[in-house]
Simulated scan of single mutants.
Amino acid sequence: MHAWEAIQKSIDYIESNLTEEVSIEKLAEMAGLSPFYFQRLFSRLVQKPVFEYVKLRRLAQAVSDLKTNNTRILDTAMDYGFSSHANFTRAFKEVYGITPDKYRTTDIQLNQFVKPDLMLNYVMVDENVPLVTDGIVLEVTRKKLDKPRTFIGIAKEIPLSELMGGTNTGVSFAAKLWDEFHEVKAKIPYLLANGNKLGALYMGGAKKDHCTYLAGAEVEYGSVIEGYTVFELPDSDYLVCGFEAVNFEELTNSAVYKAQTFMERWMKEHKLSTTDFAVEMYYPVTDGRAYMEHWVQPVPIKE
C-alpha cells in the first residue's frame, strides 16, 4: 500500500464517523503506522494536523445541518463533539468569521475545508480518458472555439484566497456575487435561451491580493448593456477539464476544488501554463447530473 493510500483510508474513516469519537491510535492502526509517524504523515499530506482536520470536517457537516435540520444549535454542537453552545460558537466563528446563529438566519454561503482525495495528487490520465474518483468524474479534453462568445454579468474584486477553495474557510464572496446576479438575471436583455452561465477569473485592474470575478450568462454576440460587465471569450484553442457530480451543491463545493487541484497538476505534468484568465462554464442540471467545465488557454512552458 502506498503511503497516500494509508492516509486516505484514515480520511475516509474520519468522514464516516464525524459524530463519533476518533482516536489517533485507531487511525494509526488502520494505516499500519505508529501514532507518531501517522500524525507526521497525515499533516504532511493533508496540510493539517489530525484533530484540526477533524474539527474542520465536523464544522463543515454542522454547516449543512444548520440549514437543513430544525434541531437546536446546542444539539448540533453536541452531535459533533463540542462540549457546549459557547465552545461550538467560538470554533465556528474562528473558522468562518460569523456565528452559527447569524449563519442560520441569513443566505450566506461558506467555503469549507473539503475532504481531500489524495489520489488526485498521484494518479495521472491522458486526454479524453475519464477519471472516476470519490463520487465525481473528471476528464481533460481540448476544444476549439471558432467564434468568440459574449457573456454579461456582475464583476467584483474577490480575495485571491477565494481561489483556494477546498482549503480556505470563511464567507464565499463568489457565491454572494452569484446570488446578486441571479436576482437581476431576468432583467438582462439579449440572453441566449440555450446559452451557458459563466464564471470568469481575471485581473482586470484588481488590487493586490485580489482578482476580478464575473458571474454572468451568455448573450447575443457583441451585446453591451449599461450597468453590467461584458466578458468576451475569444475564439481560440482551449484545454478543458470537465467534471460531473451527483448534484449541484456537490459540484460547486468539493468537486470544483478537486477538479482544480487535478487540473493544476495535469498542466504541470504536461509542461503547460495558461494565459491571464480562466473560466467556469456551467451547464443545466439534467437527470440528476450536475456538470461544469474549467476552460483555459494552454501555453507551452519553454525550457
Rank of each mutant, 00 (worst) to 15 (best):
M1T: 13
M1R: 12
A3N: 13
E5D: 12
A6I: 06
K9E: 14
S10A: 15
I11V: 15
I11Q: 00
D12K: 08
E20R: 07
E21Q: 13
V22T: 12
V22Q: 11
S23F: 03
E25S: 12
A31H: 04
L33M: 15
L33Q: 07
P35M: 01
P35H: 00
F38S: 01
F42S: 04
V46Q: 02
V46I: 09
Q47V: 11
V50N: 05
F51E: 09
F51H: 09
V54W: 01
K55L: 10
R57K: 08
V63M: 09
S64K: 13
L66N: 05
T71N: 12
L74N: 10
A77P: 04
D79L: 13
H85V: 10
A86Y: 12
T89D: 10
R104A: 14
T106Y: 09
Q109R: 14
L110T: 05
Q112H: 14
P116L: 08
D117H: 09
L120T: 10
V125T: 14
V140Q: 04
V140H: 02
L145Y: 06
K147H: 13
R149N: 02
F151M: 03
G153E: 03
A155Y: 00
I158T: 07
G170S: 06
G170R: 04
F173A: 13
A174P: 08
L177I: 06
A186L: 08
G199D: 10
L201E: 09
G204K: 04
G205Q: 01
D209A: 10
D209M: 11
C211Q: 07
T212K: 09
Y213F: 14
Y213L: 09
Y213N: 01
L214A: 03
G222Y: 08
T229S: 12
L233R: 04
D237W: 01
C241W: 04
V246K: 15
T252A: 07
N253V: 09
Q260C: 12
Q260D: 12
T261M: 11
M267V: 01
L272G: 04
S273E: 11
E280N: 06
Y282G: 00
V296Y: 00
